[in-house]
């Protein structure tokens, strides 16, 4: 077919603002961005631990008591909780557990994991700070 001319390809590509197109995309982007706070907090925490390792436990606690660190920690906590919740939910959606004839729902995984998170966090706080 000699007359089968090729025309320039027209294709709608992803625009930089694609994630504002609908609510799901935006929630996805929020989920991804909140991980930045998780990473930043981890770095701060590792730095704090290094103070403990090289100095004393008091150095570590003093560092954590710095108002700027406390403020950032609170913000990071909110974002981390959101980030964790989205993944707990996804975990429930991707790997439901079969109990008898029914399967667990994603929100059940979310609730169970949040409870576990609180318990484990409390244990960690107790070990590091309260003890």
């Amino acid at each position: 077919m000699e007359d089968n001319k090729r025309y320039p390809e027209l294709r709608r590509r992803l625009s930089p603002g694609w994630w504002t197109a609908n609510r799901h995309y935006t929630m996805y982007m929020v989920r991804e961005w909140t991980s930045l706070f998780v990473a930043l907090y981890s770095l701060i925490f590792i730095y704090g631990l290094s103070l403990w390792a090289m100095g004393s436990r008091a150095d570590f606690l003093n560092f954590l008591k710095n108002p700027a660190i406390v403020g950032f920690s609170l913000i990071a906590l909110v974002f981390t909780m959101y980030h964790a919740a989205t993944w707990f939910y996804l975990l429930g959606a991707v790997a439901p557990v079969k109990i008898g004839r029914s399967r667990t729902k994603p929100w059940q995984a979310l609730v169970l994991n949040l409870i576990l998170l609180v318990i484990i966090s409390y244990l960690a706080i107790w070990l590091l700070v309260l003890r």
């Binding site: 609908n22 799901h24 995309y25 996805y28 996804l90 959606a93 991707v94």
Partner: peptide, 23 residues
Amino acid sequence: CTLVGECSVVCPKGVDPMLAIQK
């Protein structure tokens, strides 16, 4: 796949491709 999940939202047949990819 980075779990955007929109494939499963728009699928008219309830295939849930997002789930298949994670599995």
